[in-house]
Design a protein around this nucleic acid. Sequence first.
DNA 1: CCTTACCTACCTTCTGGTAGGACGGCAGTC
DNA 2: GACTGCCGTCCTACCAGAAGGTAGGTAAGG
Lengths: 199, 199
Amino acid sequence: MSNLSTTSDDILACARSLIVAGGYNGFSYADIADVVGIRKASIHHHFPSKVDLVRTLVARYREEAEAGMANVELHESDPHEQLRIYAEYWEACIADASAPFCICALLASELPVLPEEVGLEVRAHFRSLSAWLTSVLERGARRGRFQLVSTPRAEAEAFMATVHGAMLSARAYGDPKVFGVVTGPLLERLAPRSLQIRP
Amino acid sequence: MSNLSTTSDDILACARSLIVAGGYNGFSYADIADVVGIRKASIHHHFPSKVDLVRTLVARYREEAEAGMANVELHESDPHEQLRIYAEYWEACIADASAPFCICALLASELPVLPEEVGLEVRAHFRSLSAWLTSVLERGARRGRFQLVSTPRAEAEAFMATVHGAMLSARAYGDPKVFGVVTGPLLERLAPRSLQIRP
DNA sequence: CCTTACCTACCTTCTGGTAGGACGGCAGTC
DNA sequence: GACTGCCGTCCTACCAGAAGGTAGGTAAGG
């Protein structure tokens, strides 16, 4: 159960960054082969088909996301701070261009032409992210930390949508700062000055 | 200056719906040929290269969007209503699945792998839409119609991002209603009850 | 000896794109 | 009106390269 070969990880990492750049149809096995320094056929040894590759890629991404959410829950109990950590995580990713887009958000945009197995993973991510955000908002509202204008669920969907849209705008403008410009006030709005617990 | 051949329009319309489904790399000339009932080579007669096709497609889309904004300005002077009309336009498009995604939003997600000429058109749309939204919000704030928590520009970017994200979520969940769930409160928030001019 | 990882060589199908011809309509012009 | 040349539209027939994928082999290592 240790890290067997790193090649398969290299392939996954490479595929991930290629998908972030151009989606499912935006890369080929040949592209990966070039970057990883391996032959096309060797990739098929690790991932028989492109669907296998992308499916396990998204599955792993989901695991990481899930772990990330659990980690936030573990180290920070304040709902408002939790959302801030989430937003700032993406802000950092976009700023240093390490992963300037959520893979699932990108793949979701091409859902109609995606292989079914991949599409299922993508949808699952949306559901799990939305569920977590809903729980955070609900807890925050219960504690009087947030001032919600609609249901926690609706606010969570709006929050998620805005974050995804902010990624898109940052990419469209070619300016990482746009992400912060959009998400900053988003957090402010949920917890107005009057509710801030600044000692 | 009359409508010469309708074939080139058919090609554009078909390409548009194919792009809405799967982006730039999600369709081929063969796909269009099948739908329009023409041979692949004939498409090259109208649009020498794929870049030509998509560039003129996006350029036309931008013209239509520009005309749409002008039309809203012409027939409705209330800023809040203007935004509502914009949001409800998309809500209708998504609900009847006629065009369940903004072409430029979709293409923006694959910007890094897009031909430069297409990318320029896409960016231009973002700028022009953002500029219009900014002007609407600014006017609304000046008239005391909106209650903005940050600059009109920032609010406009947030509004646009949320709408784009809402499209994405509607697609991810396979549920058109999600778009309304997200954008509804968005409008409410800008013009709170206390500012409503309901006689 | 068998498994794992990787290779070369090859296959089929699709990709965007080209060359050149067929056909019809529409000026001219005799 | 008939002939002629041209232009726009669409065709068949190609092409080179890229796509995802397969077959079968080699070398290393427990």
